[in-house]
Design a protein around this nucleic acid. Sequence first.
DNA 1: TCAAAAGTGTTGGCATTACACCCATGC
DNA 2: GCATGGGTGTAATGCCAACACTTTTGA
Lengths: 234, 234
Amino acid sequence: MEYYKKDSGILLAVDCIIFGFNGESLEVLLIKRDFEPERNKWSLMGGFVQPNESPEESASRVLKKLTGLENVYMEQCSVFGEPKREPNDRVISICYFALIDTQQYKHILSDDYEAKWFPLQQHPTLIFDHEQMIASAQHRLRMKAALYPILFELLPEKFTIPQIAALYEGVYNIELDKRNFSRKLLSSGLIIKLQEKDKENSKKGAFYFKLNTAIYKEKIMSFLRYLPSWGLET
Amino acid sequence: MEYYKKDSGILLAVDCIIFGFNGESLEVLLIKRDFEPERNKWSLMGGFVQPNESPEESASRVLKKLTGLENVYMEQCSVFGEPKREPNDRVISICYFALIDTQQYKHILSDDYEAKWFPLQQHPTLIFDHEQMIASAQHRLRMKAALYPILFELLPEKFTIPQIAALYEGVYNIELDKRNFSRKLLSSGLIIKLQEKDKENSKKGAFYFKLNTAIYKEKIMSFLRYLPSWGLET
DNA sequence: TCAAAAGTGTTGGCATTACACCCATGC
DNA sequence: GCATGGGTGTAATGCCAACACTTTTGA
């Protein structure tokens, strides 16, 4: 039988794995920690859950403090709670990943932190178990993105198909046939062609598209439809 | 800037969503709570995270206390932490779901608890947010099972194809064409035919199979292979 | 002999793949 | 005019849903 007991001595934190896409590659936002222990080492942005807020609110608060952004796509991923994961205190941390469009918001990073975007594959060594946190968030991002088109959260208002392709290539670390990818995407009804072209990245220029939000929401919401196919490829 | 602070007043718990399969339908194991608040109401089995254990260990401990089982497939799902989710204390709960084969272990439920298996769709009203916990666990189970063949964890050593089909039908709440399902499964290489037949459930009898553990582990482990198809159906 | 469940054969259609080829443009 | 990346056409492939049909057996 189990009794309630006060003051477990356990502290509850959140850490944010902030994924960004700059139009070319997938990045993660890290900060240089400005307090002990491990001061001046790179880490994820985090904070403690306050008595009057839910963990989701904590994560949003932490994200806003660093980036100024609100209403960002965030999702709970795993909890890290090994007794010795931090040296001085018993801290259990709930991880959230966030998806943001780097281009659009690069400027509003808070000056209070030394924050920097790193390519997902080549970031500096991180404190504690923060590397595992990123790995687990990436895994969950892949799982989720395989079933729902959430990666569109990482794109700006208007985007080109080659950009989306690059995004998927970054997330899954693969190479896609852009020609087939493009067709598949168009036939999904998820995107709407605009008149304008992006001429920055090629001579011919690629048409901009915007998200068909009605279809997007429908697909994001259709929780119940997936059926097993068991990754039968190799 | 964020400082460490002791004694947040937050208690950390785990709750276990224990899924079972009896060969016919999918069930969830609930207990009648024997302490206040909400004594004598149905709830998930839970417990508090102790200072010297990880949340995973807590969940395993809790599961073992109720069922006697160790080395059961368990997986973290979401965290529930709304400030007012329990009336008296601020308790944040990490949910784990477990998959077990009901048939094999029905007898070893601990007598210390009034525990009972309920069909997943028709369980009694539960305390606090435990209904949501089950819903979220089921969602995660579906997601996971769409990408990996984890549902085999719910099956006994030897099983028939109609049983697996019933299991998938229960998890996704759909009807399958057993004929096509059977073929798909056979061609996956995941199962090995035995000589023996199960004659309990049909006149003709269905062959027993066992899991091809080598291929199973490979498929469970292949984290990186899934690719988007965006649920383009409907 | 009939009903009921297990399982096989066969089909057409659809999605994915691979790749040839055309397009638009800046240099 | 030619290299470059964007994009379309098209054929081959493989998978999968649909369903007719066979098998096995208990009652």
